[in-house]
Design a protein around this nucleic acid. Structure first.
Lengths: 336, 336
DNA sequence: CTGAAAGCGCTTACAG
DNA sequence: CTGAAAGCGCTTACAG
């Protein structure tokens, strides 16, 4: 019941608590035999360093924070988020670092959370996702001096460690697939307009379509939600000439379109091919099943964790590249 | 950059740091004017108590832990988990308590995590989900003295605070719906055999079926996964006489059956009615859409957080009841 | 009502 | 290689 401290160990072994601390942390200043006895006693007592005490004296919280900023209705729906968290947590826990998780839907709260965590010395660093246009967060973490890793950016970000995702490659793969099927009127239903990577994708898709087939992309904003995706689809189906294929920025919007094809008055894929930027069980269970990009989110999360831990440890962050996406062709895409 | 401490405040205001501490914590021993000046200065400096220091002196980590023990492939798929986390986190953060999250797939690691968190004084309490048969966790938290709340039990658990879910009510609603449609051969595809609530549901469903229609339930173990659900469905379709309706313990298994009805060689609902114990977007987007039980997971999570915080604060935990489930009838259930 | 002091459990220069 | 000591930033009895 009473949790043991290094004083208990010191008493048991008959040395000073400093010696115990040195031994436990693998530093010099203790003879090999003494060290071994100390480690034995510590193990026997089930001792583990109090994070509070360690944090106070070494200024390390042994904890890393993530804020997921998503509208509540999407939190349970997008499998992506939980997989990312899983990847982060697995790696962090292997290094004895714990994960603090917060969920918010507005930027105000998110910023306040970072400030609070840092001021309370709860965390040693953060992972930032979903970089927005005019995003206040990079500025904030720079101001506070919080070690931060940006997850999934288009390119390097001044002063912050970034993990890039190769949107050009994905865009090329998506457009090539549709163009090969004969599509020339292609639309893109994007996520929220204030997310940088969604704008980036729109730009890259536009360029690629132009390059590969000399065509312009029709663009609609869907905002990631079922409802937004549905409304965007209605708008683009009303356009003349009407697109014959759509690239959706996530699984939720693409699947919403497929599930409501009847009400939308469109046959998929006969009249409209549907492709999703993100795969999940949703894409697999609707009919027709949705052609989508698979990728190893958990591995990406693990990489983010490693880069952040290194940044915290050494003070220098190394930019990296997230894993590539692979197109899984299913029945929702067909000849134009 | 330099994070302010109570010493900075004390110096600024011209009082002792004890006075600052009293004022900040709303205790007596400080005159109203002094208190106000202290609070003003603290706010101006952006001061927040170091959780490490506070934890060390008051033995409170201001943090609560949750371990989600699920096979990796289910982590991103079951929306339930993220919603539960969301409910917990919202409430905790309102009280300045943070959430430590760990994801594991085996009991060993899970137990080790609780031990470690407690030994390191990282948490003040835990929420336990998915109580298993012969579950070692209640014994462990009792042994360690960790305040714990059990989420979703059938009844009270000796020595631990429990939040009950009314499975009788849900079972009655499910069976009544199917019986009214004329079904007499009903099957139950349950979750993993080692989960106590899944066994409990099986028992309660069996009793209810007997009571309402004088029938026996066919039982299969599906294990919550797509694949397990599919295999269980194959088995029960091979039975003679064959069931005409199935109650699945979660959305994933029910939806897997609907999505693969063709391969299974069964028409839903004409030949087989399908009902899911848990609702999600998955149930809404497959065709036919799946009749399922909706409930407010986020509210349940919030309740768990409140009960746990109270237990930590006062030392006494008050058992409670989770919210009820409502049957959302869709197209996957029809006349026998 | 207020202040000086000890203590929470570690880490880490600093002398021996 | 080892030990005594200060310090991290709070809280809280304990005297005044």
């Amino acid at each position: 019941m009473k949790r043991p401290t290094i004083i208990d160990i010191a008493r048991e072994v008959g040395v000073s608590k400093a010696a115990v601390s040195y031994a436990l942390n693998g530093k010099g200043g203790v003879s090999p035999e003494t060290r071994e006895r100390i480690l034995d006693v510590a193990a026997a007592l089930g001792w583990r360093a109090s994070t509070a005490a360690r944090a106070l004296s070494s200024d390390r919280a042994a904890s890393v924070g993530v804020v997921l900023a998503r509208p509540p209705e999407l939190l349970g729906t997008e499998p992506f988020l939980m997989r990312l968290v899983a990847g982060l947590e697995r790696t962090l826990s292997a290094y004895g670092v714990s994960l603090q998780l917060a969920l918010t839907s507005d930027t105000e709260t998110e910023l306040a959370t970072y400030r609070q965590w840092w001021a309370e010395r709860r965390i040693d660093g953060v992972v930032l996702t979903d970089l927005r246009t005019a995003d206040p967060r990079p500025g904030l973490v720079r101001e506070l001096g919080v070690p931060a890793v940006l997850f999934g950016t288009a390119g390097p970000v001044p002063g912050i460690t970034a993990l890039r995702s190769d949107d050009e490659r994905t865009a090329r793969s998506a457009v090539a697939h549709l163009v090969e099927l004969g599509h020339r009127r292609i639309a893109h239903v994007q996520g929220p307009d204030n997310l940088r990577h969604t704008l980036r994708r729109a730009a890259v898709l536009g360029d690629t379509a132009h390059e590969l087939a000399g065509i312009e992309l029709h663009r609609e904003v869907g905002g990631y939600t079922e409802d937004g995706g549905l409304r965007a689809t209605r708008r683009l189906l009303a356009a003349r000439p009407r697109p014959t294929a759509v690239i959706y920025d996530n699984d939720v919007m693409a699947v919403a379109a497929v599930a409501h094809a009847d009400e939308l008055g469109v046959r998929i894929p006969a009249e409209l091919s549907v492709l999703a930027w993100e795969d999940s069980m949703l894409c697999r269970v609707v009919r027709p099943a949705v052609t989508a990009f698979d990728h190893d989110v958990t591995a990406d999360g693990a990489q983010a964790a490693r880069v952040l831990l290194e940044l915290i440890e050494t003070g220098v962050g190394v930019d990296g590249d997230l894993g590539d996406r692979t197109l899984v062709v299913r029945s929702s895409t067909g000849p134009a």
